[in-house]
Amino acid sequence: MAKIFDISKIDLEGIELAIYVRRRVRTGYAILVAIVLAIVFYAAYYTNFNLAELERGSPHIWKLLGRMFPPDLEPLSEISGPLVETLQMALVGTTLPIPIAMFLAFYAATSTRRIHWLGNLVRVALNTLRTIPELLWAMILVSAVGLGTFPGTLALTLHSTGSMGKFFYETIEAVDEGILEAMKSTGANRLQIFFFGILPTILPNIMSVVLLYWDYNNRSATVLGLVGAGGIGFILTSAIAEFEYQQAITVLGVIVIILTVIDRTSAAARSRII
């Protein structure tokens, strides 16, 4: 943290100085909070966020909810295929990026890279992959390779590669320089330093992140169907498009249950690792 103000220039001593500094800090925070609130209110005004509007619309919301009940259990018979498809997309879209991201991270991390510009190039590439949301990737890929689960899986892979890659190289950079030095001093080559010095050290972090992205990708995979990239999302979209709200609520329910189970599993596994 940069120095906010220079204590040596204040003509106070002891407890007086402490109280003065404390007050200055408190005023500083108050100003900061005021600025943030002002920006938020301006944003709300600009985007027409209006609670009165919400109240006026509430009867419609209730009506819509009413039309969802009782749930029509008919989709359950055809849901299992797309559901398994969704989970498979997420599984492949999480596993495939691991080796790719690891490979790229090796070239991007300052402690392992040898060519400076190549490292920067890899970082820019990872950043681009990560910045484009998977739904957008899916739209682009659907128009490129056609409808189905393949563009969906590819979209998850691309986005996860970017995100995991960034996390991996940051974790590699956090490995104690001394360990690398010790490995280097034995005459080990770069690959050996990576496998024996870095990998064992970062393994728990990697597993934790992979689980997190598995969880995340399952959630993402459910909406990829919106743009025709396969999975359960397609059934949900078509149910809503055909005003079959009683079917939509059933699909939604299944999604929520499955995602909750996955979320719990991932969290439990991660807490064991860390």
Binding site: D176, G178, I179, A182, T186, A188, F196
Partner: peptide, 25 residues
């Protein structure tokens, strides 16, 4: 051979694996 103030062992690896790292070459 080189030794260090902070030992610089790979913490998550077994003792014997750490020693064998000296044979990586």
């Amino acid at each position: 051979g080189m030794i260090f103030q902070e030992f610089n062992l790979v913490n998550r690896m077994s003792v014997i694996m750490n020693v064998m790292c000296g044979r990586l070459h």
